[in-house]
Amino acid sequence: MYCCSFSDKVMDHFMSPRNVGVISDADAEGSSGDPECGDALTIYIKVEDYVITDISFLVFGCVAAIASSSMTTELAKGRNLEEALQITNQDIADALDGLPESKMHCSVLGADALENAIKNYYTKNQKK
């Protein structure tokens, strides 16, 4: 993939990703990807009253993967869980002013990890 095929927003989120790191007392986490294939993402969330009050991520992956992970956390922050579940990879790509055709799948990583984190939250809290 060529650097010039990325939007300024993608490059911005790649060079200065938001919400990087681990939330040590996270209420839930969710992962997606496979290091074998060159990508892996974990998203951590803190939830209060079904609203995502804090969110962070760790990612191993390409430019698009890093930028879309960062954007995923930006989109999800402050949303209630049901709204956050609605976030699609297309939303993520759109928020980044688009991704090159061959990099669209990288944004799926973000949507999947977020969904997994939320589902894990539900499972944990149902059990209680």
């Binding site: 650097c3 490059m11 790649f14 060079m15 191993f60 992956g61 390409c62 430019v63 993967a65």
Partner: peptide, 14 residues
């Protein structure tokens, strides 16, 4: 280890 090549390249490119 633990990092992906394209990201390294693009950061170098910057």
């Amino acid at each position: 280890e633990f990092v992906e090549g394209e990201s390294v390249l693009i950061m170098l490119d910057m």
